[in-house]
Structures are given as structure tokens and as C-alpha cells.
């Protein structure tokens, strides 16, 4: 179970390499991810992205779609620094299911 989780975590982290990390780092930030046994991925933005008002857009348009394509990932979330209203609008914009992003 632990090794399966490790493999999933590695796949998820690798998925962020390239376009996602390049974009985030270009803004003076960083991104890390933790995945639990159930496949729930938790994103943490660092640096200038940590409390960026546009972080939900980055999540909705790039991070979530990228990670949800990976087999074994059930949901993608982060501790938000914007209001639940803004989060809901963004989810709707990108046609994402709230349950996937809880």
C-alpha cells in the first residue's frame, strides 16, 4: 500500500514538471503536492503564488485538469485564500465537479 502510494505520488509530482512548474516559477512561486491513500491530492503553492488571488484560476485551468488525468487521483484541492464564492465561480467556469475539488 505504501509503495503504491509512493508510486502515485511520484507520478503526480512528475505531472507538474514542465509546463505547470515553469509557469508557477515564472511568477516567483513554487508548487508541491501530497497525495493520500485514497488518491486525494493536496496542492500547496509557495512564494509569490501562496496567496495569489489568481491561484484558483491556475488550479482550475491547469493544475486540476492535469492531475485529474492521472489514474488513481480522485480529487485535487488546496487551502484556499479566496472566498468560497470565488472558488465556486471558477469551478463553474472550467466545468469542474465540486466533489473533485473539495
Amino acid at each position: 500500500m505504501a509503495s503504491e502510494r509512493k508510486r502515485l505520488a511520484k507520478r503526480v509530482d512528475q505531472a507538474l514538471e514542465g509546463k505547470v512548474r515553469q509557469l508557477v516559477e515564472a511568477h516567483g512561486g513554487g508548487i508541491t503536492v501530497d497525495v493520500d491513500n485514497e488518491g486525494d491530492a493536496h496542492i500547496t503553492f509557495h512564494g509569490r503564488c501562496a496567496a495569489c488571488p489568481s491561484a484558483p484560476v491556475t488550479m482550475g485551468s491547469l493544475v486540476r485538469p492535469t492531475l485529474l488525468k492521472i489514474e488513481g487521483v480522485r480529487s485535487v484541492s488546496r487551502d484556499s485564500t479566496v472566498s468560497p464564492y470565488a472558488e465556486a465561480r471558477i469551478l463553474k467556469m472550467f466545468g469542474l465537479d465540486e466533489r473533485e475539488c473539495s
Binding site: 485564500t81 472566498s83 468560497p84 464564492y85 470565488a86
Partner: peptide
């Protein structure tokens, strides 16, 4: 508390 209209209209978190 952060009023709901400020959360909705300005994106301020609770």
C-alpha cells in the same frame, strides 16, 4: 466575520 457580500463581490476569504 467577513460578510458574505464582501466574500462574494471581492473574493475575500472567510
Amino acid at each position: 466575520e467577513m460578510p458574505e457580500d464582501l466574500q462574494d463581490g471581492y473574493g475575500y476569504p472567510p
